[in-house]
C-alpha cells in the first residue's frame, strides 16, 4: 500500500510540474519510476505515456478562455508527429534498456537547456512584449517542410522515451514557423496528448503497461495537473523553472549512469 501511495504522490508532483511548466510530465515520471521504484524502463515509459494524456486532459479541463490552441495547425503537424510516435514506440521494443536510458538522458539534458533558454528569453522579453502579442491572431505559419520534419523527429522521440515532446514542438512553432508563443504553447499542450495517444497503444499491446503501477500514478498525475492548472495563473514560475533545471540535470546524470551500467540509487 505504501508503494501505491508513493506512486500517487509521484504522479501528483509530475502532473503539477507538467501543468505549471507546460510539459507533459513524462520527463519527471520516467526517471522517478526507473530510479526510485526500480521498474524496467519500458514499463516506466508505458506508464508515462498514459500520464502525459492525463496531464493534457487536466490542462484541457482547467484551460482559461483566450488561450486557445490552433487545432488546424496542431493536426497538420500531428500527421508527422503521430507517424513518428508510432515508429518510435515500435523501435523502442527492439532497443535495449541501456540505450533507452541513454536516449532519455539526452532528452532530459535537451529539456534542461530548453527550459534555461526559455527562462532567459522570458526575462529579456518582459517589458517589451505585451500579453496580447503572445496571442496575436494575424500570423501565418511558414517553413512547413522543416516544421513537419522536426515534428516527426519530436514524435519519434516521444514514442521512444515516453515524453510529450512539448519542449521540441513549442520551439518548432514559435522560432521556426512564426507562430506567437502563447498560441504555440497552447497548441503544443493540445498536441502532446495526441502524440502520446499514438504511442500508448503500441506499449499497451506489447504488454508494457501494468495497471497496478499505471492507475495510481495516473490518478496522481490528473490531480496534480488540475491543481497545477489552477495554480499557474497565480504563481510565478521563474524560480520553479530554475529549480527544475537543477532537478533535470541531476536526473539526466542518473539516467546516463544507468545507461552505462552504474546504479547509484539504493
Amino acid at each position: 500500500m505504501f508503494t501505491t501511495l508513493a506512486l500517487l504522490a509521484t504522479g501528483a508532483i509530475a502532473g503539477t510540474l507538467g501543468a505549471l511548466l507546460g510539459l507533459g510530465g513524462g520527463i519527471f515520471l520516467v526517471p522517478a519510476l526507473t530510479l526510485v521504484f526500480h521498474l524496467p524502463i519500458r514499463i516506466a515509459i508505458g506508464t508515462s505515456l498514459v500520464g502525459v494524456i492525463a496531464t493534457s486532459a487536466g490542462v484541457a479541463v482547467t484551460a482559461t478562455k483566450g488561450h486557445n490552441a490552433n487545432v488546424s495547425l496542431a493536426l497538420r503537424l500531428e500527421l508527422a508527429t503521430t507517424a513518428g510516435a508510432v515508429m518510435g514506440s515500435l523501435l523502442a521494443g527492439h532497443l535495449s534498456a541501456r540505450i533507452l536510458s541513454l536516449l532519455f538522458a539526452a532528452v532530459v539534458f535537451f529539456t534542461a537547456g530548453y527550459t534555461w533558454r526559455k527562462t532567459r528569453h522570458r526575462r529579456i522579453a518582459q517589458g517589451r512584449t505585451s500579453g496580447e502579442s503572445l496571442l496575436q491572431g494575424d500570423y501565418e505559419a511558414h517553413h512547413w517542410p522543416a516544421g513537419l520534419g522536426l515534428a516527426g523527429i519530436a514524435g519519434t522521440l516521444s514514442g521512444l522515451v515516453g515524453v510529450g515532446g512539448g519542449f521540441i514542438k513549442v520551439p518548432i512553432m514559435y522560432a521556426l514557423m512564426g507562430v506567437p508563443l502563447g498560441i504555440a504553447t497552447a497548441t503544443s499542450n493540445f498536441m502532446v496528448g495526441i502524440t502520446a495517444g499514438a504511442s500508448v497503444f503500441v506499449y499497451y499491446a506489447r504488454g508494457d503497461v501494468y495497471p497496478l503501477v499505471t492507475v495510481p500514478t495516473v490518478m496522481g498525475v490528473f490531480i496534480g495537473a488540475v491543481g497545477g492548472g489552477r495554480l499557474a495563473p497565480r504563481l510565478r514560475v521563474a524560480w520553479l523553472e530554475q529549480s527544475l533545471i537543477l532537478l533535470l540535470l541531476a536526473m539526466g546524470v542518473q539516467m546516463l549512469l544507468e545507461g552505462v551500467g552504474i546504479h547509484v540509487m539504493p
Binding site: M1, T4, G207, V209, Y210, P211, V215, F222
Partner: peptide
C-alpha cells in the same frame, strides 16, 4: 471521458485491493 476513466480505475483498484491482489507491479494489462 476522464471522469468515466477515473471512476472505472477507482472501482477496479478497490476491487483488487479488497481482494488482496494488490501486489506490485502485478500482471501486464
Amino acid at each position: 471521458v476522464t471522469s468515466v476513466a477515473l471512476a472505472l480505475m477507482m472501482k477496479g483498484f478497490l476491487d483488487v485491493a479488497v481482494g488482496g491482489r494488490l501486489i506490485l507491479p502485478g500482471p501486464p494489462a
